[in-house]
């Protein structure tokens, strides 16, 4: 990544902030009304004030804990279910129809179910977060496992490998690039749902606080909430993406089809692993939309289309 590209990215963010500051400071009212909007300065000073309070960090911790536990559960069970459905006819017949019926239900529409089902709000919110990430992971895992070349499996079978060996030496590693496509989508959708669920039924959490601020007409507070959501979304999706790149370094790159010296590969991968992604911004935008629209039905729409975008990102790492 060149300094020029870094500068361009920083300039893009800076220009957006400048535009925001200009529109709000001048109270622009051209069909879109900015007179009620807090300025960048007001949001920044509110943020500084909040960041010194324990409540802010408690909210942040609650949201993060919910998303991490819900997402981890979704990742593990999503990969397991997706693999089972793709590999076993019985699993496909037993689970397939159930998954297809449940998949279109937006996770956020499960709030009533969660309230009925779970003794505490906390568990309900984790459940909703789990459901949000679960389906993208299942679907992408299923596709990735089905798309595996049968030659790899046959090779391992003719080495005397059994089902377990095929699963752990061929199916899971081979499906990983596709699985991470689902995980990237899943973490984005998870944020939308955790924030929305908190707005509806939380007691703590960034979403809950943002909605509280809105009901008491503390607009700078609302924007602090949004900025926090954006930053957390960026953090978690970057973490998922980093893990994905690290685990799928073996993917060949698009521009080098011939033999490449491996030392160069290692050097470049090391440098490029610090490259920030474009994905967090995409994940943050729907989150903002969900926040400003109250609990909108944004839960079903993934911010990205999954595997292909992810493949493109992982390609940047390997030579």
């Amino acid at each position: 990544m060149t300094a020029g590209r870094w500068a361009l990215r920083a300039a893009s963010l800076g220009a957006a902030l400048l535009l925001w500051q200009g529109l709000t400071a001048l109270d622009v009212n051209l069909w879109l009304r900015f007179e009620q909007f807090p300025t960048v300065g007001e949001v920044a000073s509110t943020f500084g004030q909040r960041a010194r309070e324990a409540a802010y960090w408690q909210d942040l911790g609650s949201s993060l804990r919910r998303i991490v536990s819900g997402f981890a559960l979704a990742a593990a069970s999503g990969v397991a279910v997706g693999t089972a459905v793709a590999r076993s006819r019985i699993a496909e017949d037993l689970l397939g129809p159930l998954l297809e019926v449940l998949r279109p239900v937006p996770a956020i529409a499960l709030v009533p179910v969660a309230i009925l089902l779970f003794p505490s709000n906390e568990q309900g919110i984790v459940f909703i977060t789990f459901t949000a990430a679960f389906f993208p992971v299942v679907v992408s895992t299923r596709h990735a496992v089905r798309a595996l070349s049968p030659v790899w499996e046959e090779a391992v079978l003719t080495m005397g490998g059994g089902r377990g060996r095929v699963l752990f030496s061929v199916v899971l590693p081979g499906a990983l690039p596709g699985v991470f496509g689902g995980l990237s989508v899943g973490i984005g959708v998870s944020w939308i749902c955790v924030i929305s669920a908190e707005m509806i039924s939380g007691e703590y959490g960034v979403g809950y606080r943002t909605w509280q601020d809105y009901t008491v007409v503390d607009y700078p507070g609302v924007f602090v909430g949004m900025v926090t959501i954006g930053a957390l979304g960026w953090l978690t999706s970057t973490a998922v993406e980093r893990a994905g790149r690290r685990l799928t370094r073996w993917l060949p790159s698009r521009d080098s089809s011939g033999p490449v010296p491996s030392s160069a590969a290692r050097g470049r991968a090391g440098l490029l692993s610090w490259r920030p992604s474009r994905e967090p911004a995409a994940a943050a935008v729907p989150a903002l939309r969900a926040a400003s629209a109250g609990a909108g039905p944004a839960g079903t729409a993934g911010p990205r289309s999954g595997a292909e975008t992810f493949a493109e990102q992982t390609r940047e790492v390997t030579p």
Binding site: V151, W152, A155, L157, T158, M159
Partner: peptide, 20 residues
């Protein structure tokens, strides 16, 4: 009755596990 380590198979191409 089934595949076995006694009988190894060599394929035309792309049978190596690319992640190994």
């Amino acid at each position: 009755r089934g595949p076995d380590a006694d009988r190894a198979l060599v394929f035309q191409d792309d049978a190596l596990l690319p992640w190994r």
